[in-house]
Design a protein around this nucleic acid. Sequence first.
DNA 1: AGGAATATTGTACTGTTGGGCAGGGCAGCG
DNA 2: CGCTGCCCTGCCCAACAGTACAATATTCCT
Lengths: 201, 201
Amino acid sequence: MTELFVCQGPDEIPRWRAAFDEARLVTPQQARAQAGSGDGVWVMSNLAGWQGLVSLLAARGATVKVLSYMPSSREALRAMNAGARGYGHALSAPELLRQMALVTRHQGIWVPPELLAQVMGGAYRALGGESQHQDETLSGLTDRERAVALAVAEGQSNKEVARRLEITERTVKAHLGAIFRKLGVRDRLQLILRLSQREAV
Amino acid sequence: MTELFVCQGPDEIPRWRAAFDEARLVTPQQARAQAGSGDGVWVMSNLAGWQGLVSLLAARGATVKVLSYMPSSREALRAMNAGARGYGHALSAPELLRQMALVTRHQGIWVPPELLAQVMGGAYRALGGESQHQDETLSGLTDRERAVALAVAEGQSNKEVARRLEITERTVKAHLGAIFRKLGVRDRLQLILRLSQREAV
DNA sequence: AGGAATATTGTACTGTTGGGCAGGGCAGCG
DNA sequence: CGCTGCCCTGCCCAACAGTACAATATTCCT
């Protein structure tokens, strides 16, 4: 399994070769031309347009990791959003680099432990606040009604919900009627909007 | 390396034992008493107070993974925020479970690929990044189709959209038909879920 | 025992939705 | 001048959604 390190000339770091026998240093141009599905690619965040490169390579099926001289949670998220599966310090120890490679190769995500809390915290505040609200919204419902509401919120039809919960379509409608009444919405459309917290006009 | 599965009695799943020779099923009480540093623990999200349990075990140094019958990006974020390092479907294949264990044991994070984009997307937008996804989704539509799609995404009925755009209901349907075909969705429900890119599992 | 809440199902009805078929008009392009 | 794409509409129909008016069963509380 070769590991490609995408960087400009002066950025070569001995630890990279120490970490992987088959480490190869390439320019962004070479990476675009060569890297493909299954390759492990490391992209330096000091390259111009590194996010585009990450997106491109990730779309091709490469396992992309981003290395930075000044790691931050913000940059980590940008990397992840571009399709990277790993993010870390460019001067990480060889053992850590190998660990990142192992994790990302197995569909995992790797972020420095000290950034993890911030990254996840940010995500949680964004969606977590909503889910809190979702719990509130659903708390007035019975178990059965909640199950129906969640299934409907996934876009399922009455028939599909009926199959999933092993009840008749009529019963699904009965639960839905109760849900609409309790939540004060007029149909499943508004229910979805309520549960995904978007502006219901 | 033993793997502890925390669940209520009837939730035992044969795949767990198939995945790990040393799998052990325990109750939440037993987990609190036994699990410690270095242990691999799997917590079912249908347990009452599972987030508290995850926090406790994670603080003790256990590697906690959360399993759910209805995975969602929100629940994944809740799990991560509580200190879990992995999140997945309770009925995942044994091989997938082993992969999750491998990744999390090496300081990685594991989230189902289909949820990854949502989780990261949410985190990214939370920290001030731009959301481009919706524009991408709508870019293949004509002006009129886009207007209809956005109105429908607000939960408006065909009749309401018709009034807003000053066209007949039939024309709204015509545009909607084209939208469904272009975006590959089957109805307005799925369209809404696509445009708000949430839970659609 | 009686009431209240929950869960389940039935029949019947109205309204919405999605789409097939069939046509208009308008703008741009070779 | 045809051709194509976009926009608009009519009639009709099958499927789905939501609700009114029921009934039955279980559980939990008074």
